[in-house]
Each structure stands twice: as structure tokens, then as C-alpha cells.
Design a protein around this nucleic acid. Sequence first.
DNA 1: TGCGGCGATACCCTCACGGTATCGGTCATG
DNA 2: CATGACCGATACCGTGAGGGTATCGCCGCA
Lengths: 282, 282
Amino acid sequence: METRELRYFVAVAEELHFGRAAQRLGIAQPPLSRAISQLERRLGVALLKRDSRSVTLTEAGAVLLREGRAALDAVEAAEHRARRAALAATGRPSVVLATKAGASSELLAKLLHAYAAESGSVDVDVVLCGPGEQERLLRTGRADVAILHHPFDDLTGFDTEELLTEGQVAILPAGHPLTTRTSLQLSEVTELPDLPLPRWPANDGTYPDGPGPEAQSHSQLFQLISLGRTLLIVPDSARSQLTHDLVAVPIVDAPEVTTVIAWPPHSRSRAVADLVRAALRR
Amino acid sequence: METRELRYFVAVAEELHFGRAAQRLGIAQPPLSRAISQLERRLGVALLKRDSRSVTLTEAGAVLLREGRAALDAVEAAEHRARRAALAATGRPSVVLATKAGASSELLAKLLHAYAAESGSVDVDVVLCGPGEQERLLRTGRADVAILHHPFDDLTGFDTEELLTEGQVAILPAGHPLTTRTSLQLSEVTELPDLPLPRWPANDGTYPDGPGPEAQSHSQLFQLISLGRTLLIVPDSARSQLTHDLVAVPIVDAPEVTTVIAWPPHSRSRAVADLVRAALRR
DNA sequence: TGCGGCGATACCCTCACGGTATCGGTCATG
DNA sequence: CATGACCGATACCGTGAGGGTATCGCCGCA
């Protein structure tokens, strides 16, 4: 199976529409139809059910979508890592560290400081990501290490070390009735009619439906909270970024968040190993 | 990057010889040369050093070999798993379990028995593998679950549960001087001039150099031990297969062997989950 | 100095892949 | 119920990527 065929299938499986998928791929619709049915013939397996008027995945199609995405990530990772290895061998070596924008900056600062103090340390390119984006960078080889957050990010397939486990707090606008409380239950904040939870763009850039406001960044969100339009549930350490018109209240029954440092298995990079050791030493 | 290019590169990187690699791939040498240099041009990276008379890997080439193998495995796995999903959806579903031939058959029997007794259990195809082969089957999607042995097999990228941890014993021919001992040091058995360690075929089917006899199967090995030509270091549980002319002596400082049940992450199969639960219940 | 081994180059041919035009089936609408 | 819109499949064509053969150039070796 060629990666081109996989890319084509994944596009169709995600769009569930040959026309849109073809547009996304930059080709015409007929060759796409042909490529997919050829793939099905070669695999000897029906991947899509072309019900007139709508396209749906078969069981096998759903499996190939999941596994195919992983395979495409692996191919892309091979490419990126090879390129980066060549750069490291000739020019000045460096590590790319991906982390969520606006998360536990204190931890990160300590880590970078501790690592930089080591002998033989190399430049660290810090990439600030939107939520969940670090995982993608790591899986596709565009980052060498990442700071991820269990259980939000999917850690399967990575080597990891735990750095910090903490509870979560609700960030509320100052003056809101709930700010008088010293602790909250999760159920008390998830369905507030006056403060609906914000909506984040999904991987494809679209927003899920719901009452809450749309947001792309933490700074936007904090502003929206100040305006009394939404609230936020975040790990405890985000308190350090609170401004005067925001209040944090612990949520006792929210799942604990574990911050981990993650890297691809078989990583031969000394820099990554050093960075992890520095992280573990705090 | 297309999988064809990756396959070509991996072949050359493994053979370190364009002619042989081309032969292995079933194409002529010139198109292979072209494909590789084209790949290098597109990546903007030198992968091979064509020293006159010999081909060697560059730093980037070594990385691409490692990562490329993993990527090719992932692509192959996507293909196999999709096919198997289609079969499971139409015909009678089944699970493929890969295990090392002649290893802890007692554990396996219990596991299969416990699982078969469950309601909703499906057929289990047990595949007996040569050493290290289970890992390959699992990585390429030809098996759904495998019994692996830490630290011999590489578990990175799999979800695993530990089943059993045990020490190792030396299997010696009856009457050998060392059989009078109740325990041994590793150093006492690895370099015996009269009983050199046997040689296993590597992944490419060739044998490493050395004084020991060549062997492909456990039964062959046991016979070779009986004949006083070699000895074997195996996990404790292999004792159950001893015949009268073989003796096992514990090796106190050998690394402990952990038998684990492993499956690919994101496995959605209920059968795999049931099988793992059955294994954990003993 | 000639020979053999090996990768690169030159040149040709084929077919796989992409494009346009069009069909056939189905739903929505007046 | 007829018509148009939508959508995937099919028919047909052109181009270029990828494979083949012949040969070169370089190097080590007898």
C-alpha cells in the first residue's frame, strides 16, 4: 500500500464526501473515486458504503482510518527526524520541545534552566502549541520532546516520565456567586446556564456545537471570563497566571492532571535524555 | 514520501549494496540508484556515503533506516488490521495470538482455557514463533496479541500487562561437571570452551559468527545439548520440558525474565481485552 | 596494465495517475 | 410528477514517473 493511497483514503474517510476530499487533496473527483475503489479491490475489502446520497465507513474502513492515520504519522516522522538528524550532524544541534501555551510556565522555566546549566547542553527550541497539538508534533517528528497532560493527551506509543500531578480549579470572573465558595463539585460548574463552557476548535479547525463562546487562545479565554461569558477548568498551577479580576476555586472531584515529559521510543538523542533527566531532577 | 521510496531505501541501507538491494527488490540497479538519489534530493539530505568501493550510512541515513522500518511496519499493520476487521465483521471473528514456540506452555494453556470458558469468547489462532518473531507479527498487524519476554523483546509502543517474572537456568547435558552445582554465576557458563552458546539466525536469516552450533528450533537445541555440544540459558519455567538427559541449574545473577501479554495501543477489539483480563486472572 | 566490481548516466518505453466530459441514480421542490 | 441539483462512477485521453538495457567512469587488484 502506498502512502498516496492512504492519504486519499484518510481524506475521504474524514470528509465522508468524495468531492470535498478531492478538493482538499488538490485533485479532481474521478481519479479519487478510482483510487479508492482500486485500493478496496487490492485489499479485497469494502472500506466505504456508498449509500446513495451519503458515504459511510465500514468496520474495516474505520480500522484503516485509525491505523492509517498512525501509519501516515510514522512516515512523516521518519522524514522529519531524518532531516533533523542531518541538521544536527552538520550545523549546531538543537532539540525541539513542544509544550502547551500558557501551561505550568514555572515548571518549564525550571526545566530549561536546569538543562541549560548542564555541560554539553544544546539549544532548545520551545514550541508553544494549542491544546493537543504537542502530541501531533511529537507523533510526526516535528518535535523531539513534549510536555503532555494525562488524561487529556494520548500517551500511547511514547516513552514518558511523570513530572507533576495536581488537582483542577475553576477559573471564574470576580464577583460571581460561586467565588464565595472554598471548593466546588464538578457537576456544579459544567452545566451553569450563565457561564457555559467554552468551545475549542477540533483538529479540523471547526468548532463543536454548543452554547459556549468560541476561543483559540488562553488570553482570549481569560478575557471572556473577565467579561462573565464563560468559565474554565484548568490544572492548579494555572493559578499563577491569574489577573485581579479572576478567581480560582478548587474542584474536588475533577480528575487529577498529570504533567509528563514524553519522547518517541528509540530516541537516540543524548540531548533528549539529558533534558528528561534535568526534568526529573526538577 | 511514498512507501515505495522507503522500501527502496531500507533495502539499500540494510544491504549497503545497490546491486544486491535491487535484486532483493526485484528491480534493476539503475532505477534504484535513481530513486535513492531522488529521495535524497527531495529530502535535501545525504542518506548514504558512496565511498568508492563501499556504501555507508550517514547520520541521517541511520535515523531514516530506524524510523522508516517502523513506518513501514505501521503501514503494513494498517493493511493487515483492516483486512482482519473485514473478516471479523463478516465471518466468524477470531484473535491471533503470537507466542514463542516452546515457552511457558503451562501459562499459555491456562490462559486459553480461562478465556475459552468466558461467555462471548472467540476462536484463538495460536501462532508459534521463533525467537523475537512475535514482536514483528504484532508490529505488522499479523497478530492481535502476543506473549513477549522482557528484556529480550522490545515492548516500546505496545500496551502490556505483566504475567510472570522468573529467574533463568542453564540447561546442561546430564553428567557435565557443572551439573553437580546447585547454582551458577552467569560468567561461569557464557564462555565455556567445551559448551559454546548456540547461534540463532538473525532477522535476515544469516547466522552470526562464533564457535557454537547453529540451531533453528528448541527441539534441535535440546538434542544438541544432549549430545554435549552446547548449553542453553532459559527462563525457569522451561524446566517443565526437560527430558531425562538434561539438567537445569539456576543462574543466580542472570537478568530476570518477565513474561508479558502485549497488544497494539488503541486496540478496539473486545476479544483482545477479554483475553488480557483472562490472562491477569491467571 | 588489464580485468572485474560497482554505482552513475544516457536513453527508451510503458502504464499508472491525473484531467475533462458525461452518465446514472436519488432527493428536493414547485 | 417533472425537473434540477447533487454526487459518485465510468469512459476516454495525455503526460510523466518509474522501470528496463546499454554503457560509462572510477577504483582496487592481480
